[in-house]
Design a protein around this nucleic acid. Sequence first.
DNA 1: GTAGCTGGGTTCGGATTCCGAACCAAGTCG
DNA 2: CGACTTGGTTCGGAATCCGAACCCAGCTAC
Lengths: 171, 171
Amino acid sequence: MSRTSTSSSRARTEQPSEPTGRDTEDDLEAPCSIARSLEIIGDRWTILILRDAFRGLRRFDELRRDLGIPRAVLADRLKKLVDAGVLHRRRYQEHPPRDEYRLTPMGIELSPILVALMHWGDRWLADDGPPTVLVHEPCGTDVELGFHCRTCDVDFPPTAIVSRPGPGSAA
Amino acid sequence: MSRTSTSSSRARTEQPSEPTGRDTEDDLEAPCSIARSLEIIGDRWTILILRDAFRGLRRFDELRRDLGIPRAVLADRLKKLVDAGVLHRRRYQEHPPRDEYRLTPMGIELSPILVALMHWGDRWLADDGPPTVLVHEPCGTDVELGFHCRTCDVDFPPTAIVSRPGPGSAA
DNA sequence: GTAGCTGGGTTCGGATTCCGAACCAAGTCG
DNA sequence: CGACTTGGTTCGGAATCCGAACCCAGCTAC
């Protein structure tokens, strides 16, 4: 997903009723995509909720039981994730009214973050081997997550990365 | 310790008056590499500290100024990261005694997590384009981070992933 | 030699947030 | 009807977070 030229993907950031000029104190968000991501998913419970969402859990009580999270905290995190556009709340039956939370495309694209967290934990914190392994479904091979250069057609280590100001930089 | 550490994935059957205690050894760590990783880096400030470490910041005051983090919180997070083995504290001059914090190999391997966070923020939260871009140093092409199957020799989307119990699973 | 500055912290109230337990509402079961 | 389930909200106490103040070692300028 190199976003070289298709960078105009429109994200739905919240724009709270701001009809007039907005340019003084509105730009309080950090000029850093990591910081902006963390404003949405930078919470321990939130990541665990998303992990469970990827595992297929969808209902409030399923999540609450699996995580052992306080109800109020779960309700708050789910609401924030829905507001952010990461989860979608959907009523799937009317008669006992039951809602479920599902990942949106925005949420599904969080998977590299979770996989990276999991691989790192497997490598450095799992003394007895990985509790879970992810495999490529068609063939059963372990999933690899790595840096790749399309031009050179090579995988490379993090030390081969340099950063540059992008189009959204302040300067 | 930071918060309740063993908070997730624990049933509520905890006997308060249990002098013998400690019979469940799996109570110490969650059987999930994501949860274990989050016990070390699952804090907003911690991730931002690591981001700055990747950017080359090494000294206490550099970090404090850049992040605007309270001193006590920075001291606490740095200590925890050093204890965990992610950062290494090194005295680089004796005469005013000055220490620096550098990423260990364990810390450097966190880079896919940060890159994944950055790419997600670029894609969904950066209205004006990415503030920073990462490029492959030898050729200047944008860094890609993706799933790859060595057997099939293909990149694939997250929907092609399935999970299985690994050697460290409880069962 | 002493006053001040800098790096690297620790300590201290007050404000947030988190948590467990209790409660509530809507629907279903027996 | 009363018991039970899902999906929450409300409440007081406990744990964190924060800004500000303080500490200490080592320079540096007066």
